[in-house]
Design a protein around this nucleic acid. Structure first.
Length: 977
RNA sequence: GGGGGCGUAGCUCAGUUGGGAGAGCGUCGCGUUCGCAAUGCGAAGGUCGAGAGUUCGAGUCUCUUCGCCUCCA
């Protein structure tokens, strides 16, 4: 599959090239009939947008990944401005004042989750492109408005009298005046009846609760036949739709809610690409454009589906008519597979949490539609990926890099959902049967909830399946269970209650007390002074903190490391002349370092000099952190360049490193990785750190940056063994490849030998395609080694006695022991062999014993007395066990017409009794269980069982004789009498 | 991070107050058949994920742990 791609994409490239030479004229004609044969391809539209702004001195930037690795507040890129956020926030300055691009966006998580709308109308998408142009403190409203107008009307020929503009009408409660500047600019172009004021909701844009914001101005297109849609602007009507949003960022909202003018004013615009393509080609639906046409063709071919006719549930008298649902399925599948292809290409993976979970839900929705309306039982979404790559690979070259990987991920996910679906359908059928028989066609809320909770069946699917069988669901009960589950999940995530008040109150102003934490790299102590503390959600400095008060203490200077980059926050103590504060963890909020903990003794007052004492365990953290870097390097050496860091955690006990690798790391690979790390430790390399310009640092060939992570312009480089200046002077020299170089702000050893030793103690999967290694260093590593050796020495050899007991003891110990993973694997193999021996031995013993038991059984049968027609077989069988006695009872049953049996054996103090009764006796009311209950107390125990076979036991072997006599007497009386 | 579910033969799964580990498919052997398909009879195949506990007795109950699935945050 991959082999054919380059050829296909180059075809597409040639086509674009050819078209661009032709300079075909485009004119938009009639929106009403839609009979215009579209002449502008989406490729061309995208290209012309880019060119238009390139000609106006905009830097054309590539789309940022749709999966942001550097912004934890954002699940997916959802607007063009995401990658420029630092410029608006003022944390970075733009290198060029103007930019334009097309940004890949996904909207599917979030609060207003409109996933269920996608496919049911003409314009909702989970994945879409956003065209945008930006000014960072450069041009403002005038140019933005004029260019938007020029591009739409002059270049693309949209009829001028179909365009409406909106501007911000002002808001008294915020003290904001109307945006007359924008209004007047529009009035120069448009007649007053097509320039509309808009309220704060529609025409004032904010990034978040705080930060840059400003009025916006939107261009709307009137698609009504007679251009009468003026009253429908901002009316949420499909006939008059928003096309281009121009945001003028000119205010900053502070934490107290007040707005202040920004010194630098910015422009941020966004125009939905798919919608634009539809409008320029006179199509009513985004799905009727060539953005989707090739994909629809691929779907039809792969699914042998009926033709796509473009009907919608909303304009049909029967919203669930077969053809309508077929058309919905086309749109759902096309949209979702686009979304998945882009998200997986950018490094996301379907999983059971976070954004991975959103993707899983999207995939499942598509699979369900495919199953239900196209009858697809096998994975099929994966087969649609090449069509997308062929179509979009030119504009988004990243798609062509690892298509196989994306296809495989989708196929696996589809296959595993297929299994869940089959299981769920079974459960549904059971639930439906119960509903029909017992509840008058009402499926219980509990069943619906279980389908959702355990099998991942969304409620709408369950409802659909119910409707097919003319059943209903107890929705009220379902909702109640759902809410309960939500509540439970929430209550589980609360912070340590002691520190809950340390959450900053939102919307309340607070001073930012900046902390200088440079000393963290110098040592474990430093002197600073108290600036204040965070308590009850507020940053304050009075009154003093008394004994046992909990707070987040803020110092002017500190040697504590705040949790960042995988390294945990430090613990320790802070002393002043009047008190001692125990620090339990350290976190960063903005530029404040919060020393979270409690006052141990005395008082802590503001402005006091304070000395920081970081707990000595930090040195173990440093050993582990430096080892982590070497490990990262060793992984590349052993497993190859494909190893990408996926996350890490470094604390005093261990280092936990997650990386992309799609199969378990083999035992010999583990050994090599471990010994490579130790070679570097023994070599006692100097650990170099230096602040370097990011671009320059990226030149270094061996540098390992986290894929997709966004770094500041000046980064701290940590090199193990190689001088950083030398590397910068000759960044491409092959010899650097033998050293570890990373961007890192963490605390490190000065020389690698200080790590002492390194041992891998675990290897496991965390997600599909992601493995996790856990390593330890220092004294803990040495201890693990010797523990491993001693456990290995304890392994029994085949000849040893009491194999079974020793094995069980060793397994228990092995489970909790911290030993090298390589040693663990070795021991596991060894014990596996031992296990086989044990099995063979016990089988042999069983067959031998069976022979003895049969001899004894024959004796008992021969000496048995008759009571009427029934044989009374009672006696002791030495050297037997429960299974052997059962075998004997079965044998007697075959040998005799009618029999009552009681056998006994003992192993040390433990007595086992077994009783059997033939059917005729049971019919007469003599049951094996009764016999056992009667006899077991004689040997000091009890028992029971079924009428034909019962079992009991006790602890008095010396009473077996008495028990047998008792049994004989009981049987003779019952049967004889 | 929290909740729920599952783990039994090579595969798909049953297993009801705790009381002899099962079915179907597959495998192997033997029949019917010239042979195949089909079919009849028979057999092999299990540390019931692992470890502890309760019990006279645990696939079943309790706890711990591993793996997978799933929902919520």
């Amino acid at each position: 599959m991959a082999g054919t791609l380059p050829r296909l994409t180059s075809c597409a490239r040639a086509r674009t090239w050819f078209r661009s030479r032709l300079r075909l004229p485009y004119r938009v004609r009639d929106y009403d009939t839609g009979d215009r044969t579209g002449t502008m391809t989406s490729q061309e539209i995208r290209q012309q947008f880019i060119e238009f702004f390139r000609e106006r001195e905009h830097e054309i930037v590539p789309s940022s990944p749709v999966v942001p690795h550097d912004d934890p507040t954002l699940m997916f890129a959802n607007a063009g401005m995401n990658q420029f956020k630092p410029y608006f926030l003022g944390t970075e300055t733009a290198k060029r004042p103007r930019a334009a691009d097309t940004q890949k966006c996904i909207r599917a998580g979030g609060k207003h989750n409109d996933l269920d709308d996608v496919g049911r109308d003409t314009y909702h998408h989970t994945f879409f492109e956003m065209l945008g142009n930006w000014s960072f403190g450069d041009y403002f409203k005038k140019e933005a408005i004029r260019w938007a107008w020029e591009l739409l009307t002059e270049k693309w020929g949209i009829e001028k009298d179909r365009l409406h503009a909106t501007y911000f009408e002002g808001d008294a409660s915020e003290g904001l005046d109307p945006d007359t500047e924008a209004r007047d600019l529009w009035l120069e172009i448009l007649p007053p009846e097509r320039v509309h004021p808009g309220n704060k909701k529609d025409n004032f844009w904010e990034m978040g609760d705080t930060g840059p914001c400003g009025p916006c101005s939107e261009l709307h297109v009137d698609l009504t036949p007679d251009k009468s849609g003026a009253s429908l602007v901002n009316g949420d009507d499909a006939r008059v739709i928003e096309l281009w949003n121009l945001v003028f960022i000119q205010f900053n909202r502070a934490a107290d809610g007040r707005l202040s003018p920004l010194p630098a004013k910015h422009v941020d615009t966004g125009m939905g690409f798919e919608r634009l393509c539809a409008i320029l080609n006179g199509k009513k639906s985004n799905y009727d454009t060539d953005v989707f046409a090739p994909l629809f063709a691929a779907i039809q071919k792969r699914c042998s589906a009926p033709d796509y006719t473009g009907t919608l549930p909303s304009d049909s008298t029967d919203p669930s008519a077969p053809q309508v649902m077929v058309d919905v399925a086309y749109r759902v599948i096309a949209d979702h597979v686009r979304c998945l292809t882009f998200a997986l290409t950018d490094g996301a993976i379907p999983s059971n949490e976070g954004r991975g979970y959103v993707l899983r839900r999207i995939l499942r929705r598509a699979v369900r539609y495919g199953r239900q309306y196209f009858g697809m039982q096998e994975p099929f979404l994966c087969d649609l990926v090449p069509a997308i790559i062929e179509q979009m690979g030119d504009s988004f070259p990243e798609l062509t890099k690892r298509p196989d990987h994306v296809i495989e991920l989708i196929r696996d996910e589809e296959a595993s959902f297929g299994k869940t679906l089959t299981r769920g359908i079974q459960l549904f059928n059971d639930a439906a049967d119960t509903a029909v028989k017992q509840h008058d066609g009402l499926i219980s809320g509990a069943d619906a909830f279980k389908l959702h909770d355990t099998y991942g069946f969304p409620i709408d699917l369950t409802q659909l399946m119910a409707e097919e069988r003319d059943l209903h669901i107890d929705i009220g009960e379902y909702e109640r269970l759902m809410e309960e589950a939500r509540r439970q999940a929430r209550s589980g995530t609360k912070l340590n209650p002691e520190f809950q008040h340390l959450q900053l109150k939102s919307g309340v102003a607070f001073p930012i007390l900046e902390t200088d934490d440079a000393p963290k790299h110098e040592g474990l102590t430093c002197a600073g002074s108290i600036l204040g503390w965070l308590k009850d959600g507020e940053v304050i400095s009075t009154p003093a903190l008394g004994k046992d008060d909990t707070a987040g203490l803020i110092l002017s200077q500190t040697s504590f490391y705040a949790e960042q980059g995988g390294q945990v926050g430090d613990v320790g103590t802070i002393k002043t002349e009047s008190g001692v504060f125990a620090v339990e963890s350290t976190i960063r909020v903005y530029d404040m370092l919060l020393h979270v903990g409690r006052v141990q003794s005395g008082l802590i007052k503001n402005d006091q000099p304070a000395s920081c004492l970081v707990a000595p365990v930090r040195s173990h953290t440093m050993q582990n952190h430096t080892s982590t870097h070497v490990l990262n390097w060793a992984l590349r050496e052993v497993l190859g360049e494909n190893v990408q860091q996926k996350g890490s955690l470094v604390d005093p006990e261990k280092t936990r490193f997650d990386f992309s690798h799609n199969k378990p790391v083999a035992a010999d690979e583990l050994r090599r990785i471990e010994s490579l790390v130790n070679e570097q430790v023994t070599a006692d390399h100097q650990v170099h750190t230096q602040e370097v310009d990011q671009k320059q640092a990226l030149e270094i060939n061996t540098l390992r940056a986290v894929f997709g992570e966004k770094y500041p312009d000046v980064v701290r480089v940590v090199s193990i063994g190689a001088d950083i200046d030398e590397m910068l002077a000759d960044p491409k020299n092959e010899k650097w490849m033998q050293y570890s170089v990373e961007f890192c702000g963490g605390t490190h050893l000065q020389k690698t030998a200080e790590a002492e030793d390194f041992v891998l103690i675990a290897e496991e999967a965390v997600a599909k395609g992601v493995r996790r290694l856990v390593g330890i260093s220092g004294p803990a590593a040495k201890e693990a080694r010797s523990k491993g050796e001693s456990l290995l020495a304890e392994c029994p050899s085949q000849e040893d006695v009491n194999l079974a007991e020793r094995l069980s003891a060793l397994q228990t110990e092995l489970e909790s022991a911290v030993i090298p993973i390589t040693k663990r694997l070795e021991i596991r193999d060894l014990l596996g062999e031992v296990q086989k021996t044990i099995k063979a031995q016990s089988k042999q013993a069983a067959t031998a014993a069976a022979g003895d038991v049969m001899t004894r059984a024959q004796e008992l049968l021969d000496s048995a007395q008759f009571v009427g027609d029934t044989k009374i077989i009672v006696g002791e069988v030495p050297q037997a066990n429960t299974d052997a006695l059962r075998g004997a009872v079965d044998w007697f049953r075959q040998k005799t017409e009618s029999s009552a049996v009681l056998l006994a054996c003992h192993d040390g103090e433990k007595v086992t009794l077994l009783a059997g009764m033939s059917k005729d006796l049971i019919a007469k009311g003599t049951k094996a269980g009764d016999l056992i209950r009667e006899i077991a107390p004689i040997v000091g125990g009890k028992g029971g069982g079924r009428p034909d076979m019962a079992q009991g036991g006790g602890s008095k072997p010396e009473a077996i004789g008495a028990a047998i006599e008792g049994a004989t007497a009981w049987l003779v009386e019952r049967i004889g009498g």
